[in-house]
């Protein structure tokens, strides 16, 4: 998730768009600073970006060819990220990956989810303070306790009670869903929608519950 700092622009922003991630370097920050920050972000996010594809938006800040190459190497080495295209101006996009076919006119509200990436499996209860980021689907074999966060690019499946924060479809995939034996979260997010649980007690579900987007709203269904 791009962090926004109100007082100072970030050296480089990582924007999650419909087609994946876009890197937007700041117009004034020195290149070394950008590289340092990028490295830090990649270290910090562990394998959140692993095997994802990113594009580079240079419409605000032009970079030299060797700088682009340096950034591309960093992305590839640190996180296995492929830099697939560079956008010079709004109308001038050059593709670095010849094999890549742009997802043409993606249907509204969906992003290419890499189904081949294996889901992340967490084999313990997520206790308060735990933050789990998955580049694909995420399966938790245990509870997600209040104060814990699970963020996945794809679906989230919890074999236990979901009581913390869950964010499915973190890159904007509205078809992502959250499954849990019981959903009583502090907050659930799917794509860019946020839902808070209704006040008051709710009946305990018989089998499991699914949260998904219906009519642009997050609905929790009990089965």
């Amino acid at each position: 998730m791009p962090l926004r700092n109100a007082d100072r622009p970030l050296p480089i922003q990582i924007k999650a768009t419909r087609d994946g991630f876009t890197l937007v370097p700041d117009a004034t920050t020195p290149f070394q600073e950008i590289m340092r920050y990028m490295k830090h972000r990649l270290d910090e996010s562990h394998d959140f970006f692993y095997h994802s594809e990113m594009s580079l938006d240079l419409s605000a800040r032009p970079l030299q060819t060797d700088q682009i190459l340096e950034l591309r190497c960093l992305l590839a080495e640190k996180a296995g990220v492929k830099l697939v295209e560079v956008k010079m101006r709004e109308d001038l996009v050059c593709t670095l990956e010849p094999a890549r076919t742009r997802p043409k006119a993606a249907p509204q509200c969906s992003s290419p989810r890499n189904r081949e990436v294996t889901p992340m499996i967490v084999r313990s209860t997520c206790r308060s303070g735990t933050r789990i980021e998955s580049p694909a689907d995420c399966v938790v074999l245990g509870d997600v306790n209040p104060g814990a966060e699970v963020i996945a690019v794809g679906d989230i499946i919890v074999f236990g009670s979901l009581r913390g924060v869950a964010h499915a479809g973190a890159t904007g995939d509205c078809s992502a869903r959250i499954w849990a034996l019981s959903i009583e979260p502090s907050q659930i997010r799917i794509a860019d929608l946020v839902a808070l649980p209704p006040a008051g007690n709710k009946p305990t579900p018989k089998r499991f519950e699914i949260a998904e987007i219906q009519n642009n709203m997050i609905q929790v269904l009990t089965l």
Partner: peptide
Amino acid sequence: EVSAIRDADRVIGLLE
């Protein structure tokens, strides 16, 4: 109390 339990949960996670 919820606050104490939340902290206990965090501590159990750290101990584990």
